[in-house]
Every structure is written in C-alpha cells, then in structure tokens.
Amino acid sequence: MKEKRRSTLIILLSLAFGMLALTFASSALFRLFCEKTGHGGTTQVARKMPTRVENRMITVRFNADTQRDLPWEFKPLQKQITVKAGEVGLAYYHGKNKSSAHTVGMATYNVTPHKAGIYFNKVECFCFLEQHLEAGQETDFPVQFFIDPDIVKDPTMDDVDTITLSYTFFPLAKGTNLKW
C-alpha cells in the first residue's frame, strides 16, 4: 500500500515538473516553431539563392514602426516594389538617431498575410543584427530578399499578390545578449 502510494507520488510529481520544464522550454520552442512554420508571418533566412524565376508578380510593401522609447526616426525609402517570384529584390530603410546619445536598436519583423511568411526569404537584413546609431547619426538600412518561387505551386497562395514587410525597432536593453 505504502509503496503504491509512493510510486503514484513519484509519477505525479514528475508530471508536474515535466510541465514546468516544458513551460520554460516554451520560449525557445515557440521561436523555433515560428521560424520553421512561418507562423505569425515569420520570415525565412535564405540558405541559398533561388535558382529560377517564375512569371508571378508580387508587390512588396514596406512598413516601419519605432517603439516610443527609442528616439529614432525610421522609415522606408520606397513605398513598395514589385518583384517576380524568385527574383532578388533590394530595398532600403532610413534611420536617424534624433537624440544626443548613442543608442542601440533591434528590429522585430514579420509579413502579412501571415501565410506568406514561409515563402518570404531574406538574404541580408539589418534586422539580423543590433544597430548602433551615434547621436544625430543617419544611416540607410538595406534589406535583400526574394520570394520562394515555389509559391506558385501552393494553391493557398493564389490570392496573394501583395505582401507587407513590417519592422518595429525596439531599444536594446543594456547588457542584453541576443541570439535570435
């Protein structure tokens, strides 16, 4: 009787601690899930350049936001560009530090419609790294991207002719060590 109770206790305790461990792992798992599935419009990092170009025109629009604690002016230099699926596009954003202090920012990003995230590949992006701006400094931020030509094979993407790429710059807390 006592042994039975003890073994039940051990099983139940490990269930509870297992759930607790999963919860702490969820932060990393959630990020991994978004990256792998494009959930929430998470864009992909290109491993290799596209090998073909499909005759499918897609308009990419650019959006820029800045969290209010970061004294930056941040805007896209072009409203939109139109590329073919598989064609590499290059766009620029412009950032200016309006304050009189050195500030560090890091941009979060996604695309809408969310389902296009899995097809939106970035070759090079300012959002991969933290950005330093000295007092009053201005700079252009490039983003190089392409849309996976396989998008033409996916019937659920047939209605997608416009993709909005969105960035929000956040101030980077001191001492934060980022591994995105």
């Binding site: 969820s26 932060s27 959630f30 990020r31 929430g40 969290q67 890091m106 979060t108 929000t168 956040f170 101030p171 980077l172 807390a173 001492g175 934060t176 980022l178 591994k179 995105w180």
Partner: peptide, 16 residues
C-alpha cells in the same frame, strides 16, 4: 531581473 521572455526589445514575445 532583466530577462526578456515577453519583451520584444530583447527578442521575447508578449503573445507567448
């Protein structure tokens, strides 16, 4: 303690 599980400024996500 300055972690950023739910803070986008440090790579977290409030939706999590």
């Amino acid at each position: 303690f300055g972690t950023t599980f739910f803070e986008p400024a440090g790579g977290g996500d409030p939706l999590l």
